[in-house]
């Protein structure tokens, strides 16, 4: 790995989902294992398209990478209590949507340190909680909500069954109506043939 001083001289253009581009230093970008696997050896001619993520998210992710360029090598997950003031501010100023976008982007870009800190943050939200509290944190429906949902689904299923039964009934009636002219036709043909046969036998 190049030293931070020399790698910071190299800049890469990153393209976001909005089509906007912005600069990221090589040293910061090298924290992404996805980048290392895809572009480090072959290089990139134009902007590197990370178009599944918006500009704000990518900027936030690379802000973290830029900051941690000078930190010692990553050595496994850190406990939340060991995070620096900067790290804590970084996480605290994110709202829920941004936090989830950052986790997803960090996971895609395979930035170990950031991913691990994000996971530790989620783990911290869950530690020591009871089941009901956990359900709220991980936004699962509660037993009552599930029960209500099941009732609604049962009602919907019953209504759909009724509609299907009515449709089947209507179809049966239509079939009878459609069958009538055919029977009449058969009878008429039969009568004609009988008359023809009779006239033929008279001759």
């Amino acid at each position: 790995m190049t030293s931070p001083a020399s790698s910071s001289e190299v800049k890469y253009l990153i393209e976001s989902s909005e089509g906007n581009t912005f600069d990221v230093s090589g040293a910061a970008l090298r924290q992404s294992n996805t980048f290392n696997a895809m572009f480090l050896n072959i290089g990139a001619d134009g902007p590197i398209p990370f178009t599944d993520y918006n500009e704000a998210t990518l900027k936030k992710v690379f802000e973290y990478c830029e900051h941690s360029v000078n930190e010692e090598n990553y050595s496994g997950p850190k406990h939340q209590d060991d995070l620096s003031k900067w790290d804590l501010n970084f996480f605290n100023e994110m709202d829920q949507k941004m936090f989830i976008d950052v986790i997803n982007a960090s996971n895609f870009l395979d930035i170990e340190r950031l991913t691990s800190y994000c996971c530790e943050r989620i783990a911290r939200m869950l530690r020591g909680k009871n089941t009901q509290e956990m359900i709220k944190v991980i936004t699962l429906p509660t037993a009552e909500e599930l029960e209500a949902k099941q009732k609604v689904e049962e009602k919907k299923a019953a209504a759909a069954k009724k509609v299907a039964e009515k449709a089947a009934e209507t179809a049966e009636k239509t079939e009878t109506l459609e069958e009538l002219p055919v029977q009449q036709l058969v009878q008429t043909t039969r009568n004609k043939l009988t008359r023809k046969y009779l006239s033929f036998s008279n001759e």
Partner: peptide
């Protein structure tokens, strides 16, 4: 802050 845990990557 609620997190849609089951929708996060595996």
């Amino acid at each position: 802050m609620p997190i849609p845990f089951l929708k996060l990557p595996y």
